[in-house]
């Protein structure tokens, strides 16, 4: 390993622990750095990288064009405040150099030097915070957020702010049970992956923080690949196959997902942070290049089709293996 890898590579959460990939309830305790062949990731629950200001601006633009990316059923008000008042302190704790939080009773003051903004709000007063607590949270963290209510022996995806979905739609999923949200995913129902995951999540206790990774591929550095914008990005999945720029255009898309039990509301907070690394960047780490080629060529067809990578995955694998 060289020490000159650019931060995007060095901090990349490489998702393949083995030469083949299958779904599993792959959860592990959060807040522990993971060493990879390229560097490290995973020290914190929320993470700020060099794209911070860009990502926040992009989220604002996506939301302005389509407000359904932020959805909240009425009973999730406490959970939304809970998420805000849990995650702002997380951010303040890891980046005291650029953000500052002060509380006096219920009045919170928040300064964000990365965005050059400062705000104040009154805990529990929805009108005191622009767009409500969830929208404000989304204007401060790079992560997408889903909040799940726990009742009647299930988890329900009852609120969220998701602008960077990997081919799904928050507006469609909001109000669904955890099992239904995972309805389209192959294999995970028969193999018990989803049922086990839900049992595990329902047992989380206040302050618990776990994480997992999930992956797919995306053409270009496009974060907004939600179902709603499919017409904008769907055809690139076909066109990229014959494009000589394939190694620069195709990206391994990895989501670092955190799972937290919020203390006050008892909701489960699901954070999704999306990382994109082009094949060319990936190939600068020989172990990643080799392993990704192996995983992509072996991946069963149903999983490749579900991920939407079936047209180009062999082209990607052969570039990685040979190029």
């Amino acid at each position: 390993m060289t020490t000159t890898l650019p931060p995007r590579v060095a901090r990349f959460p490489f998702p393949f622990p083995a030469e083949t990939y299958r779904y599993a309830t792959n959860v592990e305790p959060a807040r522990r750095p993971v060493r990879t062949a390229g560097g490290t990731w995973g020290e914190h629950v929320v993470d700020v990288d060099d794209d911070y200001a860009l990502d926040i601006a992009l989220r604002r633009a996506v939301l302005a064009a389509d407000p359904t990316r932020c959805a909240q059923l009425p009973h999730m008000r406490v959970a939304a405040w809970d998420a805000l008042t849990t995650l702002l302190p997380e951010l303040a704790a890891i980046r005291p150099d650029v953000v500052a939080l002060h509380r006096r009773g219920d009045r919170w003051q928040w300064r964000n030097d990365l965005l050059g903004t400062s705000s104040s709000f009154v805990l529990g007063d929805d009108d005191s915070v622009p767009g409500g607590p969830l929208a404000f949270l989304g204007s401060q963290v790079q992560e997408d957020v889903v909040l799940l209510d726990q009742r009647e022996g299930s988890l329900w995806a009852d609120a969220g702010l998701v602008t960077f979905a990997a081919d799904w739609s928050l507006g469609f999923d909001v109000g669904m049970r955890f099992q239904e949200v995972h309805g389209p995913v192959p294999r995970v129902h028969e193999s018990g992956v989803v049922a086990r995951a839900e049992q595990f999540l329902m047992r989380l206790q206040p302050g618990d923080a776990y994480r997992r990774t999930n992956w797919t591929m995306t053409v270009d550095r496009r974060l907004d690949t939600s179902t709603e914008t499919y017409p904008d990005w769907g055809r690139d999945r076909r066109l990229v196959v014959d494009d000589p720029a394939l190694p620069d255009r195709l990206h391994l898309r990895v989501e670092v997902q955190h799972l937290l039990r919020l203390g006050v509301s008892n909701a489960v907070c699901f954070l999704i942070r999306t990382h994109l690394l082009s094949l060319r960047e990936l190939a600068t780490v020989p172990e990643w290049r080799r392993r990704t080629a192996a995983v992509l060529s072996e991946l069963p067809d149903d999983m490749a089709a579900y991920k939407g990578i079936e047209r180009y995955r062999h082209a990607a694998a052969s570039w990685l293996a040979g190029g």
Binding site: P29, A92, A93, A100, L101, R104, G207, A209
Partner: peptide
């Protein structure tokens, strides 16, 4: 007051963080 809460240590079942 800055409001930074302690991070809950990860534990195995049977051990409750204290």
């Amino acid at each position: 007051m800055t409001a930074v809460l302690p991070a809950r240590p990860a534990t195995t079942p049977g051990e409750v963080p204290e």
